[in-house]
């Protein structure tokens, strides 16, 4: 079998195993979560009898291992169970929110990543120049600023002072694309700043490190222009590290944007999860957690495969082409 195919298959298998392990952790985590859906739902009117009745209704009285297996088998069939709070299938609940989050993450990815790569390359191209130093300070400051501050400042500037954009992202498909874009603009700007700053920094650092290597000096001595040195000789060797940073940031966009969704009252998956935790709506919490982990595993897997694809040592495995043997 071709070594990189074998590598890909092995990584797929490892990814599946990780997800299985995660499912166990998620389930156990939810089990030991203090509080109880019946207690929360019934509030002060809870009596031991009514709680027991509700438990029975949700099947919570049965042993945990059995429930875990049922849940796992359900997932494999695409059945995420029933939300305990709203009595709606989790899949349906998740579906709406996932579309919103995917839209936000997708729009941010499209804006932020080309911007970040271009900025990082430009900084590397002019490493040490005034532009590079100024950009480095700005980018470092931005990547160190928490997104709630950036989000709040963006709201103050664009919504309160300039009155250009709505402060609350009301995602409605009825209002047409223009309205949708307007409501997405502020969250996308906020997220793009955070994500782009980090990717640009990493891109610059990776490329600048590579520029110290002897083969870059060799290219200079062959008369290769600096732009080609960076765009061909350095970039091809930087794909692996950069792909990983990009993947981590996209994964963050899918799962970690609770703060941004909260600031802009954006109806995404992260908000859904926070609400579900408060309501002890465990099937929803579990589904969200699994979804986030799935996104991480898939994105990191994609980044690793990309890194292998651009590294001939890894791509060709330890065996050179047949002519050597």
């Amino acid at each position: 079998m071709h070594p990189s195919l074998r590598f890909a298959l092995r990584r797929f298998a490892v990814g599946a195993l990780i997800l299985l392990a995660v499912s166990l952790l998620v389930f156990v985590g939810c089990e030991i979560l203090p509080g109880d859906v019946a207690q929360v739902a019934l509030g002060q009117f809870a009596t031991p009898e009514s709680i027991r009745a509700l438990h029975q209704q949700f099947g919570l009285d049965r042993p945990a291992p059995l429930r875990y297996l049922e849940w796992l088998i359900g997932i494999l069939h695409g059945d995420w169970g029933m939300s305990m709070g709203t009595k709606v299938p989790v899949a349906q609940l998740l579906g709406e929110r996932l579309a919103n989050t995917a839209m936000l993450a997708g729009a941010t990815t499209i804006v932020a990543i080309p911007l970040a790569l271009a900025l990082g390359l430009l900084m590397a191209l002019r490493a040490g120049s005034r532009f590079d130093r100024a950009a480095s300070v700005v980018v470092l400051a931005l990547s160190a600023t928490p997104e709630f501050l950036i989000g709040t400042l963006a709201v103050m500037l664009f919504s309160v002072h300039l009155n250009w954009l709505p402060a609350v992202a009301q995602v409605t498909f009825g209002g047409g694309w223009a309205a949708l874009a307007r409501s997405l603009l502020l969250p996308v700007i906020t997220l793009s700043i955070v994500v782009a700053a980090q990717i640009a920094r990493m891109t610059r650092a990776t490329i600048v490190n590579l520029l110290d290597l002897p083969f870059i000096e060799m290219a200079t001595l062959k008369g290769v222009p600096r732009r080609r040195i960076i765009l061909v000789h350095a970039l091809i060797n930087a794909v692996g590290p950069i792909a990983n940073v990009v993947a981590l940031n996209i994964a963050y966009l899918v799962s970690g944007i609770v703060v941004v969704e909260t600031i802009f009252a954006f109806p995404g998956v992260a908000r859904l999860m926070v609400d579900a935790v408060q309501a002890r709506d465990l099937p929803v919490v579990q589904a969200c957690a699994m979804l986030f982990c799935f996104a991480y595993v898939v994105l990191i897997l994609a980044a690793d495969l990309l890194a292998v694809l651009f590294n001939p040592r890894l791509r060709r495995g330890i065996h050179p082409d047949g002519s050597a043997g």
Binding site: L213, P214, F215, E217, M218, A219, V232, H233, I236, N237, F310, N311, P312, R313
Partner: peptide, 10 residues
């Protein structure tokens, strides 16, 4: 050092 002076990815 030829090993260091060739780009490993090309």
């Amino acid at each position: 050092s030829a090993a260091a002076s060739f780009n490993p990815a090309l």
